[in-house]
Design a protein around this nucleic acid. Structure first.
Length: 902
DNA sequence: AACAAAAAAAAA
């Protein structure tokens, strides 16, 4: 009879309740066979599985086999009380320890090879599966612990003769009998690579879902005596339920009916929006690059393309990637308002925010439904309809799972980790597979991240995915590189060369080539800003003071925090109380300043409040919608100067105290033959932050020559002129080439780190070593996270809890500490001093932190502050071991100064 | 000699 479990097999356990968990469940363990079938059932029903191109019976069998390694004594002895003596006799005194994922691969690939042979077919010419190719499928299902596994030949010889070999063969035969799959045809190499990566992802996703005890209650060994019966009558119904609860039930995409159906507020589409509503998209996976001015409605235009790609069956969901958590949070709000329009009204797609701090965002936390809320049967109809935006708790709980939601918004890092050899990269791949990958602000990346981006586009295209890139302007070189990466993923090695310098511009890329489509700018958005160079700090200071005297809204963007603070102090001496804004504040204070700055200088600011000076670091460069009458800035690379200039006269205003379309750039004169000290003499900090002085020099020179920044008129020319490395003055050549070298090294480092799709899911596809942590961003120098605390009544309180009482509650603990953080260069502060009598209180406070934060005590510092006039003070040591005083001032932020002697 | 902002970090 089909699917009858041989006597002993049902006693093998697959899951055991962790010690200490409630005993109110019927069984202490879950049979191995049951767990295998649970997970297989989830795989068969998971909508994402359809992309694999496998028959459900084939998929079910492959995924069921993922835990084959658990038949070994090594695994069964892990909980001696559950040792299956009915099958294996008494528990031996010693059992060799071994990993069940590695053992699983050996059992599948070697021990059970002949039993499982019927799964593999031959093609029309009688050509059969290569042994190595079969091994890849086994690797995909066996390597379900986050990274690919290799066969250990010594272990393979041992296992081949072990008693459990017979059990493994029986188990394989049993599962084969449950699923009775038709043979899988011989794949092309390309198909195989796609299949193995995707299979690896599906196995992990479904194993995570199928391992939830509350969705798959433990059963008794006798319940799996009829394995096929268990699969059909228990596993499948539970899997369907589980998928709905996880927020991964099937959803249907709505047909595209025009931009107005997605965004009620769009009455008249902008030219780029109108173009993208109509333009013919290339067949198959497509890359669409949209370059247009800020304020032109690029995001809406991108969602139009995304919807069209989805509606034409090329994708089932969307992931929006942004450069920062703050921009991701803001985008989450915008997408939340529109995403339901992508799907049929009856569908309940999940929308998730994916980044390290997602659950600290109150807007996301508010839409996280309890586990059962998405279970259609359990939720009253009224509530279903009311739930405009929702995300299952299971998805929301963790960033890797959040990527699985039908619509996701998050940091680019979350997507980049899909192409890095980090644990469970495959689940991130599974999350992105079948989605439109929308990358916003895609110019904002350094060489390391650019190389990762290229790798991501290539991998995504290899998996059949489409992508949309948004930017104000890309250099041609970057656009070329990203286009080439996508085409490489489509196996199109023939180079295409970009020619258009039009702006705005839409670039369309597909299997059959590339087209560039110029586009008109949105009417009324054109800008022309004059650029005035100022050669000394003092002169800028005079201008700022004068403008403040006239009641203007003035901003000075400085390149270092120390300069920001020093400038604000100098202004104060002249009677001008400037507001200070940079990132060296505790998060709670930074957010408060941000709110204040937005109220004063934002879109809805009142003329009476606007008079005043803001001295800020790069924090106001992007994403904050600020508007100043007068804008000064330290010299910076061209794209950043253009970004900063966008903060001048950004909004329509009736009257301005100073009414001039002009920015002032503090920069040394771009003389023809600058000496090596050219930038450092005037702006030493700037030289350290922006390492290529030639880039700064070309920026200053181009600005001076053109005299204006005109959008859309000359921004492309300005950026290309600043990036033209063929013009590098001799005096700056050395420093410039050092900087270029750093960039190349970073680029190379990324290329060494990334995963190679074409090598398949093997240990060799990347640096998978467990002790290597591959970062998504390179850190040029180490930073520590300083958490500010205050000792009161023998207890350490997070700084934030003193500022906001609601954060003092126990449940707000995590949030309170996160809001009390400041990031400081380790060179300045490496350790904090804790007085003898505060030691216990500090230890108690740290004990409440997450394991990661607790254990990395050289990276997560707790600084005890004592209140002093105007702020607070603490003590510590810098990286050289010198004693320092940390001053925290409510207006100026955190400063580290040498401790007074003695 | 001098240094922005930015992200990540537990398993099935």
């Amino acid at each position: 009879m089909a699917g009858k479990v041989n006597d002993g097999l049902r006693f093998f356990w697959g899951k055991a309740r962790p010690a200490g968990q409630a005993e109110d469940v019927t069984a202490p363990t879950h049979p191995l066979v049951a767990h295998m079938l649970d997970v297989a059932a989830v795989a068969v029903l998971w909508p994402g599985s359809s992309r694999l191109g496998l028959d459900r019976r084939q998929l079910g069998l492959l995924v069921a086999l993922h835990d084959m390694g658990k038949v070994t004594p090594a695994f069964q002895a892990k909980v001696p009380a559950h040792w299956p003596r009915q099958a294996l006799g008494p528990l031996p005194d010693t059992v060799v320890d071994s990993r069940h994922d590695v053992d699983g691969l050996i059992l599948l690939d070697r021990v059970c090879a002949d039993v499982l042979a019927p799964l593999f077919g031959a093609d029309a010419d009688g050509l059969e599966w290569e042994a190595d190719d079969k091994a890849q499928l086994w690797r995909a299902v066996a390597g379900h612990h986050g990274q690919p596994v290799a066969i250990d030949e010594t272990r393979a010889r041992t296992l081949g003769h072990a008693a459990c070999a017979a059990h493994a063969r029986e188990l394989a035969g049993l599962l084969l009998d449950v699923f009775r799959p038709p043979p899988i045809p011989v794949p092309s190499l390309d198909q195989l690579r796609q299949l193995e990566w995707q299979l690896a992802g599906v196995t992990v996703v479904t194993d995570w879902i199928g391992s939830r005890q509350d969705w798959f209650p433990y059963v008794q060994p006798d319940d799996v005596a009829d394995a096929a019966g268990y699969f059909w009558n228990h596993a499948l119904p539970r899997a369907q339920h589980a998928l709905a609860r996880a927020g991964l039930g099937p959803v249907t995409v709505a047909p595209f009916r025009g931009i107005g159906h997605l965004f009620a507020h769009v009455q008249v589409p902008s030219p780029v929006q109108a173009l993208l509503e109509e333009i013919a998209l290339p067949a198959g996976p497509a890359l669409v690059v949209i370059e247009d001015m800020t304020g032109s409605g690029k995001t809406e235009a991108a969602l139009v393309v995304a919807h069209r790609l989805m509606a034409s069956g090329r994708a089932t969901g969307l992931f929006v990637a942004l450069p920062t958590m703050a921009t991701a949070n803001a985008m989450f709000d915008r997408i939340a308002a529109a995403y339901r329009g992508l799907f049929q009204p009856s569908a309940h797609p999940s929308l998730a925010l994916a980044h390290g701090r997602a659950l600290l965002d109150p807007r996301f936390a508010a839409v996280v439904a309890p586990d059962d809320a998405l279970d259609a049967a359990a939720v009253p109809q009224a509530r279903m309809e009311a739930a405009e935006v929702s995300c299952a708790a299971w998805l929301a709980g963790e960033s890797r799972r959040a990527l699985l939601a039908q619509v996701g918004v998050g940091t680019i890092d979350q997507a980049l980790m899909a192409v890095l050899p980090v644990r469970f990269a495959t689940i991130r791949q599974a999350g992105l597979a079948g989605k439109v990958l929308l990358v916003d602000e895609c110019h904002a990346y350094d060489p390391y991240m650019q190389a990762e981006m290229a790798a991501l586009l290539r991998f995504h295209a290899s998996m059949g995915g489409s992508a949309i890139l948004l930017s104000a302007t890309l250099t041609k070189a970057v656009r070329q590189k990203l286009v080439a990466a996508f085409r490489a993923g489509l196996q199109q090695e023939a180079p295409v060369s970009l020619s258009s310098t039009a702006y705005p511009l839409v670039t369309l890329v597909g299997c059959d080539g590339m087209t560039e489509q110029p586009c008109a700018p949105r009417p009324g958005l054109a800008r022309r800003i004059a650029v005035r160079q100022s050669g000394s700090e003092a002169a800028v200071m005079v201008d700022v003071v004068a403008a403040a005297g006239q009641g203007a809204a003035v901003a000075w963007v400085r390149n270092t925090v120390d300069d920001v603070i020093a400038t604000a102090r100098a202004l104060a001496q002249q009677g001008v109380e400037a507001q200070v804004f940079h990132a060296r504040f505790a998060m709670i204070d930074r957010l408060a300043i941000e709110r204040d700055v937005l109220a004063r200088f934002g879109r809805n600011s009142m003329p009476a409040d606007r008079a005043g000076v803001l001295v800020a670091s790069q924090v106001i460069e992007q994403s904050l919608d600020l508007d100043f009458d007068v804008l000064c800035t330290d010299l910076a690379p061209m794209d950043l100067i253009i970004q900063r200039a966008g903060r001048l006269r950004r909004h329509q205003r009736a009257a301005r105290p100073i009414d001039r379309d002009e920015i002032c750039v503090l920069a040394p004169a771009p003389v023809d033959d600058p000496d090596p000290e050219w930038i450092r003499r005037l702006l030493p900090g700037t030289a350290a932050v922006y390492r290529d002085p030639a880039l700064l020099w070309r920026t200053a020179r181009a600005l001076l020559r053109m005299g204006t920044i005109e959008s859309p008129g000359n921004v492309r020319d300005l950026i290309e002129a600043a990036g033209d490395t063929s013009i590098t003055p001799e005096g700056l050549a050395t420093a410039s080439s050092v900087a270029t070298g750093h960039g190349l090294a970073a680029h190379d480092a990324a290329r060494r780190n990334i995963l190679h799709h074409e090598w398949g899911y093997t240990p060799g596809s990347g640096l998978w070593e467990p002790d290597i942590r591959t970062p998504t961003r390179l850190e040029e120098r180490p930073y520590v996270t300083v958490r500010l605390g205050v000792l009161r009544a023998g207890q350490v309180w997070p700084w934030a809890a003193l500022k906001d009482e609601t954060l003092a509650a126990a449940h707000a603990h995590r949030r309170a500490w996160a809001l009390s953080e400041v990031s400081v260069a380790q060179g300045r502060l490496a350790s904090c001093h804790v007085a003898e009598d505060a030691r216990e209180a500090v230890a108690t406070a740290r004990a409440g932190w997450s394991r990661w934060e607790r254990e990395a005590d050289d990276r997560f510092l707790l600084l005890l502050l004592t209140e002093v006039e105007g702020g607070a003070e603490g003590r510590g040591h810098n990286a050289k071991g010198h004693a320092v005083v940390v001053r925290y001032d409510n207006r100026y932020g955190l400063e580290v100064v040498p401790a007074p002697a003695g």
